[in-house]
Computed example of a mutant assay.
Amino acid sequence: MLKTVGLALAMLAGLSFAAGDAFAEEPTKLKIAGILSAGKEAPWETSFVNSMNRVIAAKPHGLDIEVNYTENVYDNAEQVFRTYAQTGEYDILFGDTAYVDAIEALKDEFPETMFVMSGSGNHGLGGNAYWIFIHAHEPAYVMGQFAGKLTKSNVIGAISTFPAEDTNDQINAFFQGARDVNPEVKAKMTFIQSWFDPTKSNEATSAQIAAGADMIYQMSGAFEVCEERQIGCFGNYVDMSKVAPKSIVASTIVKWDPHINWIIDQWWKAKTTDAEFDAPMKPKWFPWSEGSGDLVVNPAWKDKIPADVLALAKKTEEAIKNGEKKIELDMSEPKAE
């Protein structure tokens, strides 16, 4: 009997020791490489870096997170990802755009590394290659309501980089929001065929103004002409009112926080359960109601906007967030009228 009790106690002690070891092996640090398609000053990249900083401060799972960035990565993407992976120091290689070709070439060579690609131009790879998608169409729809109500010419416009799914969705929602409150609205559309080119962007803005547009969704990051002509312009990804205080009516704010937290949760799950990475084949995205964005009205414009228009925008925002109103996710290429 005593021998049996002693054996049981020994087994319990062994289990307790093993559990203690498992707990001790939980990661305390996480090292991420942020691989950016443009410089940090570009709005898309700024939104990513700002979101990452908030996540670092929040310390998910109690992790001390270090992030190092490489900017202006495009044609050289495979080499940049490989350089980080070969160090063996980085847990997650987090790309902010369409890096599927580079990741597909490397993922199996570095199975212990988590790779992340973002947005359109990618496809599911599974395993250790995770795909997230940023959709800001919901706040863009509300901005369209502002444009439709505030335009005097009934001509609105949008200027963007390339016709990609993660820009198309915002533009289509912006146009739809304007049309829903003002059926007389006509839309102008220009793609500058560059990720960041202020000169081309300003030229496109001038052309749309000449064609009658007085409310323009400026998605390519240049507002000099908006300021000079003092028309209504709309920013995206970050609050642009400090850049163009006279012309910015409102901005959509992209928050990568839920996407970054989801990626970290997936990494944590694999590392604490000794499981393999198991990325879904479809992209993961989060709606406005789950903290993926925001809408910021420029304080300098609030006094210019009629109270009923502000109330309409607020009501629509609340309806979207509580699920009463659904905004179509239309990723087709927007067309000019």
Rank of each mutant, 00 (worst) to 15 (best):
M1S: 12
L2D: 11
T4D: 12
G14I: 04
A19W: 03
E26W: 01
T28A: 10
L30W: 14
N53I: 00
G62M: 10
G62L: 08
N68T: 15
N68Q: 15
E71R: 14
N72F: 13
A77K: 01
T83M: 10
Y84V: 12
Q86P: 02
G95H: 12
P111Y: 12
E112M: 06
E112R: 11
M114W: 13
V116D: 07
L125R: 04
N128E: 09
H137T: 00
P139S: 02
A140M: 13
V142Q: 05
K149L: 07
K152Y: 03
A158P: 04
I159V: 11
F162L: 09
P163H: 08
P163A: 09
T167G: 01
N172T: 03
N172K: 06
A173V: 07
V181G: 04
A187H: 11
P198I: 10
T199I: 09
N202A: 14
A204M: 07
D214E: 08
I216D: 01
G221M: 06
V225I: 14
V225E: 15
C233N: 03
V238Q: 03
D239P: 04
M240W: 13
V243H: 05
A244W: 07
S247M: 04
I248G: 02
I253Q: 07
K255I: 00
H259A: 10
I263C: 11
I264W: 09
T272V: 14
E276H: 10
A279H: 11
V296N: 00
V296K: 08
V296D: 02
V297E: 02
V297R: 03
W301K: 10
A307Y: 07
L310E: 11
A311M: 11
T316S: 12
